[in-house]
Design a binder for these strands. Structure first.
Length: 869
RNA sequence: GCGAGAGUGGCGGAAUUGGUAUACGCACUGGACUUAGAAUCCAGCGGAGCAAUCCUUGGGGGUUCGAGUCCCCCCUUUCGCACCA
């Protein structure tokens, strides 16, 4: 009923939006085809593609409205814009839905994609639909399997047994990046540790490049770069070999041929430290419970049970609530002091960082201190706070800062940094240690024990071992004929028709790999696939297309992918570069991370009951209104607080905007063609010439204001993307126009000169163009009403010089730094006359009684006069 | 604990470079139109005060003729990492 009333009035958004959406669809308005783009400026505008859950939410609307505004703006600025969309369609929800509803994941996914496409189209996003990517289709993942085989050949993909993160609820392993706060990123279940054989991508081979590359990503938010930097976690230090007392004594401890894996085999134990300067204070060695030596050195049966218990606890949860451990019974020799120090097993020592063993310096490390106190281990101070160094309140222990060495033999008196250098040098010279660089980053575990993912193209042959498929046998298609029991393992593991195959090498019986790839693999290269128009090409993409379109000029998505997706993608592009696909090192030049949409201060979620459904809102108020609100209510990088009343305000504005166009349509519809404002030198004959003396003052003024906004918006739309300020400026322009129009009664015959009419039409057209990126339907309609043609061939408005000279301006007058009055002065008035005028103001007189009393003045032309008395 | 960001009316937010704080919108109040309401339009809207005037950008200090903006300390809050040796 309410809608009926609205529709009977002027703005029938359903009709208008459907009209333009069908035009865009019919004419493929936003497709980039053929060679058209080759000699024009390009712009690759990309939003993170969605998982096809079937329902879009406000977060999507916001993400894609931002991207669409940028894409449409760039087109107006003359760029050929690649603006694609696709679906990240492998993943667990499809499989869970299949279990729950007894459907097929591929069918479920297909249906969801269909309804999401409908929703995107209903929102009027300007996508190039010819380039859609659906990652669960063999035509897509075929290439991913090829990359895998090529990476395998290069050693960038490999298999190993290790302790990996396991989510019992998702029944699969997780990469390190996918464990947040000890929990599974997807379901929030507590992650445990499992010892399993897994496929890995060797992302660590690129650790240094991934880190260094961040410096060049000028268009990324610092926040994201810091997060990646911390995640990569580079630290340089010293690894030192401590002899184990009583084992193979006298045997040389040369390290020339030693490597990590043999650690402990030759009667030594290798530790890693970033504080070599504290080595004289090392009073015990702590090793991880998973360390090879933990089992070897622990002889006492009771302690063996203790070790088992600690290992068990570490596997259950990554979270260590209390430090615990035990003395193994063995000692090591501190190579610098020559003293025997006990070797402890300690639960807080990580096996997969450094060497899995540390030298513990309780005097100068809080963790070691806590442990030493608990087990009564000796604490020796070796660092004193030096002069000129920042001191802690008491300089008590543990003292973890730098300082001057004491109790450190020949190194006494040196500052930490220098001492660290010398000690490291000494260790290297004596062959008992070496400088090393460690990264926190681990290789990317990509095996998933689930069905709905990209099959890993290898088989296991009893004779030949692990054998990759031949490239010509790709794609290895994920079989469709599976049954979902919902019990633990992937249905692939029971599908004999899939598992049983021939070994590509010997032709004998072989079993297929039943794990599938992490879905983050698909999203690591989809942005490359978009560049390929002809999907029948026998290639994942063409080098020339990638080199033309990439890097992505503006990438928009949620900050939750700051590490996972954005790090994997950077790695993948570097790996493909090294596989000689193209010369490109970084995929995303500029990154915009948008905030969440919240209601009543909380993230929208079903459980909180604060979800706003975009579909319903579009039905009620239209796509333009919804889009305008999500762009107006907050700058993109901040969280957006939902407000139903605020949305209605946007609807009101669009009504007003449309009404203005309809009201003045009659005056401006027949004003056509290009025009030129008269200039002294050149005039182009076929253009309408606007005579400056024919323009009324009011028109000059609003054209001047338009120019100011056009310039401001241009800056905003090219970097900061604070659409809220752009939209508010547009509102001011419209209000200004309406004010002028009503106070001057411009509809009356003879009020407007022909030049005025040309300029006011230009004004209205410009407002329409400025708003078009945000509310494209109504702007297309408004433009057509005034001009009889489509807005897409329009370009961004120019700033016109109508000869408008502002004669007066207000300057702020301060007395002793306090704002006292605003006075009107001629533009560019000099200081003396400005002061005269200011002093004639009653408000100023009150504070400045005598001109002689003035000590000093500060004058900024056309802005401010500051008087000090 | 470490690291990064944020704190401005009743609310979302503006002020990009130190120079008229509170643009734009929402909510609210009054008025016009109407039998009435909705919608629309007009006016008002940081706080205190009759007023002149004073106060106001989380709190305190500082630099400056002048600070929301720069510096120091503190508080609150959001996010990320969390035994990475």
């Amino acid at each position: 009923m309410a809608k009926q009333i609205e529709n009977n009035k002027s703005y029938d958004f359903d009709k208008i939006e459907n009209k333009w959406q069908s035009i865009w669809e019919r004419e493929s308005t936003f497709s980039v085809k053929g060679d058209l783009f080759k000699n024009k400026k390009k712009f690759y505008c990309l939003e993170m593609f969605p998982y096809p859950s079937g329902q879009i939410h406000m977060g999507h609307v916001r993400n894609y409205a931002i991207g669409d505004a940028i894409a449409r703006f760039k087109r107006l600025k003359g760029y050929v814009v690649l603006h694609p969309i696709g679906f990240d369609s492998f993943g667990l929800p499809a499989e869970n839905a299949a279990i729950k509803n007894k459907t097929n994941p591929s069918l479920w996914t297909k249906n969801n994609i269909g309804s999401m496409i409908r929703q995107f189209k209903r929102l009027g996003f300007s996508y190039d639909w010819d380039r859609i990517v659906i990652t669960s289709e063999p035509s897509y993942y075929k290439w991913e399997q090829l990359f895998f085989l090529q990476m395998l050949k290069r050693g960038l993909a490999y298999k190993k047994i290790s302790n990996v993160n396991w989510c019992e609820s998702c029944h699969t392993t997780l990469a390190n990046e996918q464990v947040e706060d000890g929990r599974c990123w997807r379901c929030g279940n507590n992650a445990t540790i499992k010892n399993m054989e897994q496929w890995f991508f060797k992302i660590t081979a690129y650790a240094e490049e991934l880190l260094k590359g961040l410096d060049n990503l000028k268009g990324w938010p610092d926040k994201v770069k810091t997060m990646q930097k911390n995640w990569i976690g580079k630290s340089s230090g010293l690894s030192v070999f401590f002899k184990i007392a009583g084992s193979a004594e006298g045997e040389g401890v040369g390290i020339a041929n030693n490597n990590h894996k043999e650690n402990g085999n030759n009667g030594t134990i290798e530790i890693f430290t970033t504080r070599a300067d504290t080595i004289f204070g090392a009073t015990f060695i702590a090793i991880s419970p998973f360390h090879l030596l933990a089992g070897k050195l622990t002889k006492d049966p009771e302690k063996k049970i203790e070790l088992e218990r600690i290992i068990h606890n570490s596997l259950i949860s990554k979270d260590i609530t209390e430090k615990e451990g035990f003395f193994t019974g063995s000692y090591a020799i501190n190579p610098f002091t020559g003293k025997k120090i006990p070797i402890y097993v300690a639960n807080f020592v990580l096996m997969d960082y450094g060497t899995g063993a540390i030298m513990s310096v309780p005097a100068h490390d809080a963790r070691d201190y806590e442990f030493a106190k608990k087990y009564g281990i000796e604490i020796i101070r070796v660092i004193e706070p030096g002069k000129g160094l920042k001191k802690t309140s008491e300089d008590g222990l543990p003292y973890a800062l730098c300082g001057v060495l004491v109790n450190s033999g020949e190194f006494n008196g040196l500052f930490s940094e220098k001492a660290g250098e010398k000690i490291s040098g000494y260790a290297e010279k004596m062959g008992i240690g070496r400088r090393v660089i460690n990264y926190r980053l681990k290789d990317w575990g990509i095996s998933r024990q689930r069905y709905w993912g990209c099959p890993i193209p290898v088989v296991y042959c009893r004779k030949c071992g692990t054998v990759p498929l031949n490239e010509s046998d790709l794609p290895l298609v994920l079989p469709d004929n599976v049954t979902f029991t919902g019990e633990g393992a992937s249905p692939l593991e029971k599908l004999e028709s899939f598992i049983g195959t021939k070994c590509p090498k010997c032709g004998g019986y072989a079993k297929r790999e039943t794990d599938t790839m992490d879905t983050f693999v698909e999203s690591s290269w989809y942005f490359l696939r978009y560049t390929l128009l002809d999907r029948d090409e026998p290639a994942p993409f063409k080098r020339e297309d990638v080199m033309h379109w990439l890097p992505v000029d503006r990438y928009i998505g949620g900050v939750e992918h700051a590490i996972m997706h954005l790090l994997y993608s950077r790695f993948f592009v570097k790996a493909l570069r090294d596989l000689n696909y193209f010369k490109l090192s970084e995929p995303f030049k500029n990154l915009l991370t948008q905030g969440m949409v919240v209601k009543n201060g909380a993230k929208m979620s079903k459980s909180k009951g604060n979800v706003v459904d975009p579909d319903e809102l579009i039905k009620k108020l239209g796509a333009d209104t919804v889009r305008l609100f999500v762009l107006f209510a907050a700058p993109p990088e901040k969280d957006l607080e939902w407000s139903d009343a605020g949305v209605e305000g946007m609807s009101r504005f669009i009504h007003k905007f449309y009404k203005t166009i309809l009201t003045y349509e009659g005056i401006f519809r027949n004003i056509g063609g290009d025009f030129q404002i008269e200039k002294e030198n050149v005039e182009i004959k076929h253009l309408h010439i606007i005579k400056k003396n024919e323009i009324s003052q009011g028109v000059k003024k609003i054209i001047y204001q338009l120019g100011q906004v056009v310039e401001k918006v241009e800056v905003e739309m090219d970097g900061r993307y604070h659409f809220n300020t752009v939209i508010s400026s547009s509102m001011e322009l419209l209000n200004g126009f309406n004010n002028y129009a009503t106070t001057h009664d411009i509809q009356k015959e003879g009020v407007l000169s022909k030049s005025d009419k040309y300029l006011l039409k230009y004004f209205l057209n410009s407002v329409i163009i400025i708003l078009y990126p945000f509310i494209p339907h109504i702007c297309s309609e408004a433009y057509e009403i005034l001009n009889g043609s489509g807005i897409e061939k329009e370009s961004w408005p120019k700033v016109l010089d109508t000869g408008h000279v502002q004669k007066k301006c207000n300057i702020a007058v301060q007395v002793n730094g306090k704002m006292r009055d605003l006075v009107a002065v001629d533009l560019n008035t000099d200081e003396d006359s400005a002061l005269e005028i200011a002093l004639s103001s009653n408000k100023i007189k009150k504070y400045v009684t005598h001109k002689n009393g003035i000590k000093k003045t500060i004058y900024i032309k056309n802005k401010l006069l500051s008087i000090i008395v």
